[in-house]
Computed example of a mutant assay.
Amino acid sequence: MAGKRILIVSTSFDKIGTSDEPTGLWIEELAAPYYIFKEAGAHVDVASIKGGRVPIDPNSLGDGAVTEHVKRYHEDLELKKALEKSKTIKEFTGKYDAVFVPGGHGIVFDGPNDKDLIAFVEKIWSEGGVVGSVCHGPAALVNVHAPNGEPIVKGRKVAGFSNSEEEAVGKTKYVPFLLEDKLKELGGLYESGPDWQPFAVADGKLVLGQNPASSPEVAKLVLAAI
């Protein structure tokens, strides 16, 4: 894996829609892939949609959400700095072998229509690179198209935060669309496991996972697909 380059792209959105409820990146969904990629020998860069401080969902820092990867993040001054003073996608040049979009509710709001993110993912895809994402992250792929003009999820196995999980966290009426429904609408062959349990699927160069617990498995499948 030495010499392989992966760009992780985070949301910059910090509120649930127009409410005052804080959201942003779900830190496990960035931390787990980040460390798994690096331990495999890949070069990993971290960007965000707007640059600057990446908002982190406070719920992802709570006791029930703290995994070994999150604990490692808390001690990692280098990664913390990368998230505090993140660069935009345009600031990263050269060829990347994969792009990875972590979730958190923020990405549902700023990911789907961000032209820079769409263009970057489409470039990776057209060059035969890997597109990976987890939980709400696949929301950033709903307007991404293959060179033939079709959605990259069309006709492929996909996963993402399920309708039942969205209902369980009480955000159904706040998000612009339900990810499970949207992926199906675009022609994706949606699959899921039990709520909150690890579940990930790889279909060629597209690798997606269902929820925060799926982050390590998605990362491993991304490495296998590169």
Rank of each mutant, 00 (worst) to 15 (best):
E127Q: 15
V142P: 03
G137P: 10
P147M: 04
V142C: 05
G128A: 06
R156L: 14
G155I: 06
E150H: 12
P147N: 03
K154Q: 14
V130L: 08
H136A: 06
V130D: 02
V158H: 08
V158Q: 03
R156G: 04
G128W: 13
W125R: 09
G149T: 06
P138H: 10
G155L: 11
S126A: 15
V144Q: 06
P138Q: 10
G132Y: 04
I124L: 06
K157I: 00
V144Y: 00
N143T: 04
I124W: 08
N148M: 08
K157L: 14
V158F: 10
E150N: 12
P147S: 10
P147C: 04
I152C: 02
E150Y: 05
G149D: 12
G137D: 13
G128V: 05
A140T: 02
L141P: 02
H145R: 15
C135G: 03
S133R: 14
P147Q: 11
K154V: 00
V142A: 07
P151K: 06
V153R: 10
A139S: 15
S126N: 14
G132T: 07
A139W: 06
V134W: 01
P138M: 12
V158Y: 05
P138W: 08
V144H: 00
E127K: 07
A139E: 13
N143D: 14
V158N: 01
G137V: 02
K154G: 03
E150Q: 15
V158G: 01
I124M: 10
N143Y: 04
R156K: 15
G128Y: 08
A140F: 04
P138G: 06
K154R: 14
